[in-house]
């Protein structure tokens, strides 16, 4: 029986779930923020062989010099196995060297399409948006060309919308058969969506989001209520196990003691 934590935060739950989703010895292309925390946790627990790739150029570094504050910062480069620049990193994704892309966004639709560009009407208000977000960065490249994508989101109805303001990072597009292939994409698309309330995947046929597990303290209903579209609810939804005391300690004391990413809001 594992020694479960009793005072974990929703963000710590996301990090632990994200970490558990990662598979040892896979190449993981990491976006900034919580994905970097989750990868570090996985390396310290079940996945010492995970190979992180950072879009600024670092491949397979040791993340033992402190949590990177930027995917281009010095901490991503310590003992890297290969270190060039952005083109070389993204070329790896197109070629098929990157098993997972690990990204976030401000809005997501049922097909796993993500928005990190703007809120408001598009294209009418593109040049004068209601709220401007930072932009794609490398997230859309990862969503397109890593073999699978893992997505981290804050779970709120307004962020889970049937129609989002702007598609920055393609998921299953309109959900029609082979939509990604027909668009010219090479990666297989979204694999998991990990939130403060649930872990979700996608239906093989319809490509719509389906519930896989609820986070501790959540129910199928509470998750559906926090989702702005109808989720597919299979019969075998289970409750995700809480973080252990050790996992929470690693996050708080070893990986992000200053709380750069874990205590802050996930993404504006």
């Amino acid at each position: 029986m594992a020694n479960y934590s009793e005072d974990f935060t929703p963000q710590e739950m996301i990090v632990v779930a994200g970490s558990k989703t990662l598979i040892d010895n896979k190449v993981v292309f990491a976006g900034t923020g919580l994905p970097m925390v989750a990868i570090t946790l996985a390396q310290l627990t079940h996945g010492p062989g995970i190979v992180p790739v950072f879009e600024a150029g670092a491949v397979g570094p040791e993340l033992s010099r402190g949590l990177p504050l930027s995917v281009g910062g010095s901490r991503t480069t310590y003992k890297a196995n290969y270190l060039l620049g952005l083109n070389s990193a993204f070329e790896l994704t197109q070629r098929g060297f990157c098993d997972f892309g690990f990204i976030g966004g401000a809005e997501i639709d049922p097909y796993g399409n993500l928005n990190s560009t703007m809120m408001g009407r598009f294209p009418e208000d593109y040049q004068k948006p209601k709220t401007r977000l930072p932009g794609s960065g490398g997230a859309s490249d990862m969503a397109c060309s890593c073999e699978r994508t893992i997505i981290i989101m804050v779970h709120e109805p307004r962020r889970f919308a049937e129609k989002i303001s702007y598609i920055t990072s393609p998921g299953y597009l309109d959900g029609s058969p082979n939509a990604r292939w027909r668009a010219g994409l090479v990666g297989q698309g979204p694999y998991r969506v990990i939130t403060t309330k649930a872990v979700m995947g996608f239906d093989d046929e319809t490509k719509r989001m389906k519930l896989i597990a609820t986070m501790p303290g959540e129910t199928v209903n509470s998750v559906q209520d926090a989702t702005g579209f109808k989720l597919i609810i299979p019969d075998d939804v289970y409750e995700f196990e809480p973080p252990t005391v050790e996992e929470v300690r690693l996050i708080r004391e070893v990986i992000d003691p200053q709380g750069y990413f874990v205590r802050k809001k996930i993404k504006e």
């Binding site: 490249d141 920055t168 668009a183």
Partner: peptide, 18 residues
């Protein structure tokens, strides 16, 4: 030539061609 981000709304306002 580039594969990303095919399918994204970026292509509606930038000068990329498919």
């Amino acid at each position: 030539p580039c594969r990303s981000p095919l399918g994204s709304d970026m292509l509606k306002t930038n000068r990329a061609k498919v």
